[in-house]
Structures are given as structure tokens and as C-alpha cells.
């Protein structure tokens, strides 16, 4: 499964690159990622949610890092779902910020778990990546992933129908949605 997506973020290339390069930031806007923990300059441990309340954990290696231009990574040999990704940062025309180009490849044919994960991505993996990049833009431009009473799920927003009028959440709903 191969995915590409692009967005324009109205922040300088240096800032967008630095945000992405700190891989711990990825779960703030990528829906399926629960945690990324860097172990050293090149290696990191990624945890993603998978179907049936399972989590998938793999090690990743930064294979290319051109400052303020491009970052590429791939999973190491032991990964259940071999995957690789690359992101390029280009100055947007007319000083409008940074174009972010993302390219992801998941080897979902590699086993049962891979197929389950592919299914988990849903029928519209492209939409999910588009949504991830929209949240990247929200975080960098507005400072946070936006929520409303009508769509309070943050990065899990696709769970529900788009925004609608709503009423404030009860304490119980709040706990369920925000886990707090």
C-alpha cells in the first residue's frame, strides 16, 4: 500500500522540519500512532494501535536526513508490518510557508497482521493521511488539534459524522472522549 499526500503549512521550513525531525511529535497528529520513542539519533520505537485493542510495535531507522529538506525512515527487519516513509519540505511560493510532501509505503502483504492493519486503515487510507496532514497544519499554525462539542475526538475525528450542532458533553461523555 503506497500513499502520498501534500499540504502547505504557513510556517518557515526550518520550523516544520524541526517539528517533524523530533519524531516524538508524530503521534500528536497521526491518528494511528500512539507513541514514538527515539533511542538515539537514528533509531526509534514506534507504537501504533491495531484492531481488537492490540498494539503493533516496531523499530525504525532514519535512513536519510537532509536538514530542512528531507527525512526518510524505514522499519527494521523484525517489523510485523514492514513500512517506510519519507517527507520533503519545500519553500512554498510567494513566501507562503512550507510545502510538506509525504510518501508512505506499507508492506501489507507480508502477513496476517499486515492485512488486519490494512483493514484498520479503512477503505480510505488516503483520506486518513490527508487528515493527518491537516492536523499537522493545525498543530503548527494554530497550536493544537481542534475539537468542538460536535466533534470532540481530536485526531480520532473520523469515528463520527462531521460536525453538527451539539450540546456540551456530560462529565461521563467527557471522560469517554478525552480520557480525562
Amino acid at each position: 500500500m503506497e500513499l502520498t499526500a501534500t499540504t502547505t503549512v504557513r510556517r518557515p521550513v526550518a520550523e516544520v522540519y524541526a517539528f517533524w525531525r523530533l519524531l516524538e511529535n508524530l503521534p500528536t497528529f497521526m491518528e494511528h500512532l500512539d507513541e514514538v520513542r527515539t533511542t538515539d539519533e537514528k533509531t526509534s520505537t514506534w507504537t501504533a494501535s491495531a484492531p481488537f485493542d492490540r498494539t503493533v510495535v516496531w523499530e525504525a531507522l532514519v535512513i536519510e536526513d537532509v536538514v530542512e529538506e528531507r527525512i526518510a525512515w524505514r522499519s527494521t527487519e523484525q517489523a510485523d508490518v514492514p513500512n517506510e516513509g519519507a517527507v520533503s519540505f519545500l519553500p512554498a511560493p510567494a513566501g507562503a510557508g512550507t510545502e510538506v510532501h509525504v510518501h508512505l509505503v506499507y508492506d501489507v502483504e507480508a502477513g496476517k497482521l499486515g492485512k488486519a492493519v490494512a483493514k484498520y486503515f479503512g477503505e480510505e487510507p488516503h483520506q486518513q493521511l490527508d487528515d493527518d496532514l491537516r492536523r499537522l497544519k493545525q498543530v503548527l499554525e494554530a497550536g493544537e488539534v481542534v475539537r468542538s462539542d460536535g466533534a470532540p475526538w481530536g485526531k480520532q475525528a473520523r469515528k463520527e459524522f462531521p460536525q453538527h450542532p451539539a450540546q456540551p458533553m456530560t462529565a461521563e461523555e467527557r471522560r469517554e472522549v478525552l480520557g480525562a
Partner: peptide, 12 residues
């Protein structure tokens, strides 16, 4: 660009 908490459907 950022004010909509769930624009997926209109995007599609």
C-alpha cells in the same frame, strides 16, 4: 483552514 474539527466528508 484550521477551524473545522472534522472536515473529512466535505474534503471527500
Amino acid at each position: 483552514d484550521n477551524g473545522n474539527p472534522n472536515p473529512g466528508l466535505t474534503d471527500a
